[in-house]
Design a protein around this nucleic acid. Sequence first.
DNA 1: AATCCGGGGGG
DNA 2: CCCCCAGGATT
Length: 423
Amino acid sequence: MAPPSGADPAAALGRADPLAAEASLAGLEAGAPALRRRLLRWWEHHGRQAIPWKLRPDGSPPGDGEALDPYPVWAAEIMLQQTQLPVMLPYWTGWMARFPDLEALARADSQVVLLQWQGLGYYARARRLHQGARQLLAAGGPGPVVWPRDLPGWLALPGVGRSTAGSILSSAFDQPYAILDGNVKRVLARLIASPRPPARQLAGFWQLSERLLDPERPRVFNQAVMDLGATVCTPRQPRCGACPWQGDCAAYAAGDPARFPVKDAPRPLPFQVIGVGIVLDGDGRVLIDQRLQEGLLGGLWEFPGGKQEPGEPIATTIARELREELAIEAAVGEELIRLDHAYSHKRLRFVVHLCRWISGEPQPLASQQVRWVRPEDLGTYPFPAANARIIAALLERLQGPTSGSEADAGGGSGQPGASRSAA
DNA sequence: AATCCGGGGGG
DNA sequence: CCCCCAGGATT
């Protein structure tokens, strides 16, 4: 169908040819062995510092083929899903301190697990890791845990897909399994100047990653490709002058490597205003609710609220949501704080008002449970990141009102100072 | 194949 | 302000 493009590897992967990856690799000026040699030589000098879960307990690097403890690797790889290493590293450290081994994680309470994950996002990862730990322990019976050593064994665990399984198997056991994360997709897409988004050519990209993998040193090779993608073949301004594959790269030859990987046109993000009520009772306790287990921010706690209807005053929104979701009546008072928050698929503006409880025993009509808590105890509940800023503003308001602004109590709700307190 | 699921870093 | 990310599960 396509016109014969000879040795153009981009055209090769562009076709729906099952051997597209082979053709692409063959089309490269160098074969896989030469590419591996160049990459590993580069990595010897420019690879990133070794990371803790890829070292022996004494901190020295493992030899080729040497096995490592899979538990720290597993936890790290789950945290690394859609999350960059510098971001997750402190979470991993805290995680290992709190749950040092599989048994500790398996017997931990799910709220404690979520609390440890708080702020990292994609909270289903924490729930699945926790569930997987219990699954592994239950399957093993008495005696030490038997860790999976093949792809199906790891894929059987919740939250572990092909790329994560390959990363664990190569990292922990130095077994020859390929990976296909964002770094590898970008490096490969440029290497062959793929004309289509990687998501539309996943099979071809997997084949290419497998063909390229060094079967002799899979652990080092996978790490090297990721380091290349993270430090040289970066999304915006790739440093092609420092790349060991510059002479092999079709995107570089084409003159505009940053154009790859090609992506689909993004859709506009919806914008919503969320009215949030900080409901206080006569004893100074505040009302929170725990979100449903599934869906957005599942299992986390929050302050009650909901979407503002078109044309609806925000105070009406908050009173209505409190009535609909908690079956209570409350007087909506002054604004505490407002903050914008961007998720990957929508933008939200939280407008938070202090409220005074009037009547009605709170009911969990749209949540798992509701609870009156003392403000100083809010830190013991896992909240989404946006709510953590609300808590900070609330505590500041309750504790430190003596900053010479007595007049504020009268209702200076329009003051920008209130919203600045979050920044 | 398309959609959902957080949050932070960086140009 | 926009894009990107060490992806997986669900539909």
